[in-house]
Simulated scan of single mutants.
Amino acid sequence: MNTRDASVTPARGGVWGRLSDLFYRRPAILLALLLGPPLFWIGVVYVGSLLALLVQSFYSIDEFSGRIVREFTFKTYLELLRPSNLDIVLRTVLMAATVTVTSAIIAFPIAYYAARYARGWVKALFFIAVMLPLWSSYLVRVYAWKLILANEGVLNWGVSKVGLSPLIEALLSLPVIGGPSLAFSYIGTFLVFLYLWLPFMILPIQAALERVPVSMLDASSDLGARPGQTFRKIIFPLALPGIVAGSIFTFSLTLGDYIAPQIVGSSRLFIGQAVYVHQGTAGNLPMAAAFSMVPIVVMAIYLWIAKRMGAFNAL
């Protein structure tokens, strides 16, 4: 009887069998096929487009002909430092920071309750309540808020019924953030941003708090720590990665959004609107590219600061 080495796998017939044998003997080929498309997308389509955007930002526009001068220059970035353009950048960053901080303050107790106390159908109801707004169209939600915040909207109607109309009028009379109505003011823009991006803050914090051991909280209490000390020394440091993850979403999404402030808010531009105007109406692609680089730089600085603070150590 012929003997055969048991380590040699017999070849299988058919195309799929031969392919299976090939991938078994050459796992590097299988790995290349699996990682090739996503790496191509990230390296060529995604990173390549960002590099093209970066190159465009170093071009300039001819003021007489309106044509793009494809020569390396810092002229466009110097124009970005004009008071009118710098005001757009500062306004957008301040709005993004305000929305992010407020989202974290509102989201933390909600996420803590869901992670610590919610069980069974209550937890399921929590996830549905958080995710439900995301199931509808973005434009529908923004336009719905425009109707809610209008002078004839349900919010002003409800406020008038409880006798708090003078409070709304006082808010609208404030300089800069006020306006003729909530639908045409920075207060309205802030409320819409807060509504849009709050789920992106709640879910990462809730996921981070799920990983906080209950035994650690009990041990802190047994050792005589007050609730405030337990929060500062245990809960907040362990939840910080989730807060940072949520803030990346809320901060970056607010920085780049141009639809919400165009529908709800004043006539003053945000970065996303400036990119839209320069790229479309004005045809100034270098300035649009320069404005597009601002959120990237701001987010890079923010991530560097978060890393220096140790926010990613517990990831």
Rank of each mutant, 00 (worst) to 15 (best):
A114N: 06
L182C: 07
S84E: 15
P109A: 00
E169R: 14
I168V: 08
L164W: 15
L174E: 04
V101N: 13
G158S: 03
T76R: 11
M131K: 11
E152A: 10
T102Y: 08
L147Q: 14
A96I: 06
A129V: 02
P109E: 01
V192R: 10
V122K: 12
Y113S: 02
R82C: 07
V176Y: 15
Y113E: 02
L81F: 14
P175S: 08
G188Y: 11
S185V: 07
Y138L: 09
V142D: 11
A150K: 00
K123Q: 07
G158A: 04
Y186P: 00
A96V: 03
I88M: 05
S185Q: 09
Y186T: 00
G163V: 06
L167R: 02
S84P: 06
L132W: 05
A104F: 13
R91W: 14
I148G: 10
T76L: 14
T98L: 12
F190I: 00
R141Q: 11
S165W: 08
T189V: 02
F74K: 13
A144G: 15
Y117K: 05
A183L: 01
S181V: 01
R82E: 13
S181Y: 06
M95N: 03
E169H: 11
A104L: 14
W135Y: 11
P175H: 09
T100F: 11
V93L: 15
V162Q: 12
A183V: 04
L78N: 04
T100C: 08
A96K: 03
L125I: 01
W121A: 08
F72G: 02
I187N: 15
V122G: 11
P109Y: 01
E79H: 12
L167G: 01
M95I: 03
I148N: 12
R119S: 08
L182K: 04
L86Y: 04
V176G: 09
I110R: 06
A144C: 06
A97L: 13
A183K: 01
A97K: 01
A97Q: 07
A96P: 08
M95K: 02
R141L: 05
Y186V: 01
A104W: 14
S181F: 01
S103P: 04
F127Y: 07
T73V: 08
P133I: 04
Y195S: 09
A115C: 07
S84V: 15
W135T: 08
P109W: 01
T100G: 10
S136C: 07
S173I: 01
A144E: 12
A107V: 05
A118F: 03
L132A: 11
A118G: 02
L94R: 11
Y117M: 00
A144S: 15
S103T: 02
M131S: 12
A107Y: 06
V93F: 12
A107H: 09
T73Q: 13
I168W: 10
